[in-house]
Nucleic acid binder design. Structure first.
Lengths: 151, 151
DNA sequence: GCTTGACCTCAACTATGGTTTAACTATCAG
DNA sequence: CTGATAGTTAAACCATAGTTGAGGTCAAGC
């Protein structure tokens, strides 16, 4: 059984995984992607400082809001590097997501209203229907599944 | 220059692509995935009946609403197979997306409200914050990017 | 000192929604 | 009949967000 206590000392991947509820493979992936950082022991094992737990919490929460990792990484870059982030620091960068959420809600509402219209007229045709016309107000750029309904 | 007129006769992939604004590769992909169907000529080339254009329009529109192809395929299965779908048929299956959209809008609104609370208290911590707790009201099942914030 | 469990890296695989490329064939206009 | 254009297939590749497995190392308890 791994040591769950983590008093003022560093954590291993396993410990951070247990504390955060995030799989070790995911933590290594986040590190590879530059979202979290670690010190290495002489034997090349990861050691995480205590504020990494909050960092991981922020990442997971942001993902639940539908934010892609690349965007989360950018915003994490706004945290101060010279000191441990304070509650105000976290609150400040959390603000970044609000306008994003507002925007997505508005977009979905517009789409729903158009859909209601289009069900009424039964159109859903390429040239007549506003829903079918991407240039109208939405555009998904590039292939592959990325952010759905992004602006 | 391909024949853009398509009067009461069948269309090739290129023609359907031009009319629908969807790349030929995507149309072949949709066919492989069972979302559209075609007749084959003696030389193994695809020929699409005219109502396929509307089918493709429905697919693209649904994708713009954030519906995954697998779900779109299921709903397309509700169309009558013995006759060309009428406007009422299209309107009927379009209804399927409304509750889906409503649900997603409500989910995003809940998340936004929680976020506003959490910015206020600056928490975003694993055990205290409602946003960080997946079992609460949202759950993303399985790995990989699929529907974001689905229910 | 040895065994056990946890760690390391790298590569391959999952799923979604396609695009791109290679090698080959069909169809049509002149 | 020939050449251009458009079609065919399968396999490989893109991004996102990881997981899984192989093969090897580290650290701690006994």
């Amino acid at each position: 059984m791994p040591q769950l206590a983590w008093n003022a000392k560093e954590a291993t991947v396993g410990e951070l995984a247990e504390r955060s509820g995030v799989a070790p493979s995911a933590l290594r992936f986040y590190e590879r992607e530059g979202l979290i950082h670690s010190r290495r022991t002489s034997g090349n094992q990861r050691r995480y400082s205590r504020d990494t737990l909050r960092r991981v919490a922020f990442i997971r929460t942001s993902q639940r809001l539908g934010i892609p990792l690349a965007t989360i990484r950018e915003v994490l870059g706004l945290l101060p590097e010279d000191r441990t982030p304070t509650r105000e620091d976290w609150a400040r960068i959390s603000e970044c997501w609000r306008s994003d959420l507002d925007e997505r809600i508005r977009t979905l509402q517009r789409l729903r209203d158009h859909l209601t219209d289009c069900i009424g007229c039964g159109c859903l045709s390429l040239d007549r229907c506003r829903l079918s016309n991407p240039g109208d107000e939405l555009a998904d750029h590039g292939p592959g599944p990325r952010r759905l309904l992004e602006d």
